[in-house]
């Protein structure tokens, strides 16, 4: 085994490993949005976030525009505050936009559905660090059943 051939084979081995890493980066992990692009932050207060987790998606009509960065409890009024990082590509959302905690499919994971509002005179766009006022909480199955039962009682 001469050293030239050894070097060639080791080079091929390294190239193969790089190809595997690239394939994992592009085809397997979603290296799309988070890496190449700046983001800005939006906040939203919910009554109940259900099963929302950090890194859950933020979607407009099914298109992922950002992710949930952190979830914490506001110490003054004990409501969950969700911090979202949104890609700078999508800057022009009016202040009247609303967010809701939704579930993909019957048993799927939960995500934030972002509905852009109407923009007319006097309404500004959402900026970095803004709070979205119009929020809709997650549907909790037990609450729904409770409402249904009590609703029948009052009839």
């Amino acid at each position: 085994m001469n050293s030239r051939k050894t070097e060639l084979l080791v080079g091929a081995f390294v190239a193969m490993a790089i190809a595997a890493a690239l394939m994992l980066a592009i085809h397997v992990a979603n290296q799309g949005m988070e890496s190449n692009g700046e983001t800005y932050r939006l906040y939203a207060k919910f009554d109940n976030i259900g099963g929302l987790k950090e890194r859950s998606a933020v979607k407009v009509g099914g298109v992922t525009i950002g992710r949930v960065d952190s979830i914490r409890l506001d110490p003054s009024d004990f409501t969950p505050v969700v911090e979202m990082t949104i890609s700078k590509q999508y800057m022009e959302f009016p202040e009247t936009s609303s967010v809701a905690v939704l579930t993909s499919g019957l048993l799927g994971e939960q995500y934030i559905g972002f509905t852009p509002g109407f923009s007319f005179d006097g309404i500004e766009n959402l900026q970095d660090g803004d709070y979205i006022e119009d929020t809709k909480s997650a549907l909790v199955l037990e609450d729904l059943i409770g409402q249904f039962l009590f609703g029948r009682d009052s009839e």
Partner: peptide, 15 residues
């Protein structure tokens, strides 16, 4: 197969 994989797998977290 590919798209749900891409939505689930994270570069830092998993790879």
């Amino acid at each position: 197969y590919w798209s749900i994989m891409q939505a689930t797998v994270e570069w830092n977290e998993d790879v």
